[in-house]
Amino acid sequence: MALVLWLPAQDLVDDLRSRGVSAAATVTDVDSKPKYVKVRLVSSPEAGNEVKLSDYAGKYPATHAGASMIVTYDAKDPSRILARDWVRDPPVSLQTFLCWVLAFVFLGFGVALIIRRSWVLRQPEDPSISSPQEVRLTKP
């Protein structure tokens, strides 16, 4: 689950770091949830285009309509766009962090269970327990 949240966002950041184009943009619309943030590019070959910012692991930058920001977008696909600050230093995603922690906890429990089981199976049998008593299933 952690990889599902982390890999696509990290892939976007890596692509934008390698071939991204920075441009000034103006925020045109922000949903209150926030489910999207729309920006209009101002200073780039794509000037005038209005696009939705891509999310980073389900997060959007805290902003408001009319605000200015510097964004980085993919020249091949302008719909892949993030705030430049997030391309340089991506935010920490609480959901991804919790998934990683849970993954390591369950991995630790699994390893501990395997070690315990192998230790129990290697122990010699106790001779006093080796002769089980008969249990009658019917009344005499």
Rank of each mutant, 00 (worst) to 15 (best):
V4L: 12
V51C: 03
L16T: 02
L94E: 12
A24I: 02
L94Q: 13
R84C: 00
L7D: 12
N49Y: 07
P90H: 02
V42D: 08
V30R: 01
S22L: 08
A112F: 12
R122E: 10
D15G: 12
P78V: 09
L107G: 10
S118E: 15
S79T: 13
S68Y: 06
A75F: 06
W6P: 01
F106T: 03
M1C: 13
S128I: 15
F109D: 11
T72G: 00
T138I: 12
V92M: 02
S22T: 09
R17V: 08
I129T: 11
D31H: 01
I129Y: 15
V87G: 03
Y73L: 07
D126A: 12
R19Y: 05
L7K: 09
I70M: 13
N49V: 09
V4S: 14
A112W: 11
V39D: 04
A65G: 11
S118W: 15
D55H: 03
E134V: 11
T96Y: 06
A62I: 05
L98P: 03
V135Q: 12
A23I: 01
P124C: 10
L82T: 00
A103C: 06
S128K: 14
R122H: 11
P45E: 08
L137C: 12
D11I: 07
G108N: 10
E134H: 14
Q10K: 00
I114V: 15
P78K: 08
A24C: 09
E46I: 10
P61L: 01
S32E: 14
L82C: 02
